[in-house]
Amino acid sequence: MQKILEVKGLTKRYGDHLVLDNIDFDVDEGSIIGVIGKSGCGKTTLLNTMVGFIKPEAGKIYYKSKDVTKSNLDLRKNIGFSVQESSIYNKLNIIENISYFGRLAGLSGNNIKERTEILLRTFGLTEARHVLGGNLSVGMQKRLDIACSLIHDPEILLLDEPTANLDHVMRKHIIDLIKQVNDSGTTIIISSHILEDIRTLCNKILILNNKKAAAFDSPENLEVNFSNHKLIKIQTELQDYANLINCLNTAGLIKKHHTHEDSLYLFTKDLKSTLKIINQYYSNSNDNLLNIDIKKPSLDVIFEHINSRN
């Protein structure tokens, strides 16, 4: 599959504050890429940098193998961007909003009319076509926002937290719409903190952590990478896990570990030996083992684990 977008060594800082550090990833044409990470990890900055709204300190962005880091007119003609807060004019109605952005995209009057009708039908906005943007519900505003991003039928659609602040029904509706847009051939890059949406939609996931791209792979591969490990969750009375971790590290049994809400999470390939040492440790310890749980890691757990590395 042809790579429509490539990001290489992208670095961005605000003053002394490093936000993105040497980010690398590429986007296949027609795919859906998910960007996840903790709040403030730089997801929005990454998307803003990709569309050229923010200039990076270092790194390159390639659109169809053409460097568009400095001059990105070609990319801007073929990209749609919907940010978390709907980018619409509250004092313009639905048709006016869509037409306005169509004109800025350089479309002809007929083309705008045609595309507007399609988008109104696709996004279920036909009935409310004369309602002002400011009078729409949050869900309708989001739909209008995505419709505005698609007026010029872009090759790439960037969605920043498209399902944030939406109820379950509306969220599902938006997810369906994104799928529908992708089915028409549009490449989609979506950032979200709702991992379920990302898992459902994306072909590949970029996990941002500590300003870097901690992982970039398909959801399946991410799970497989972690599936030969087992996740052991332990909770004890005193919640002092330092000596236990030392024992396990000395034995070379755990690959990764982290603590979260009174519990210790251990990733291990040798479940049997690890459980044996845990049992031995607590039988000789004055601490009491309250709970022990063993499971295969989900995307949530992988994300949580990656984020807890710091």
Binding site: N48, R76, I88, Y89, L104, A105
Partner: peptide, 16 residues
């Protein structure tokens, strides 16, 4: 305006 970013990334020159 929230629409500023979308205006900025359209192929329209800023001077418009």
């Amino acid at each position: 305006s929230n629409a500023y970013l979308r205006n900025a990334i359209t192929p329209t020159p800023k001077s418009v």
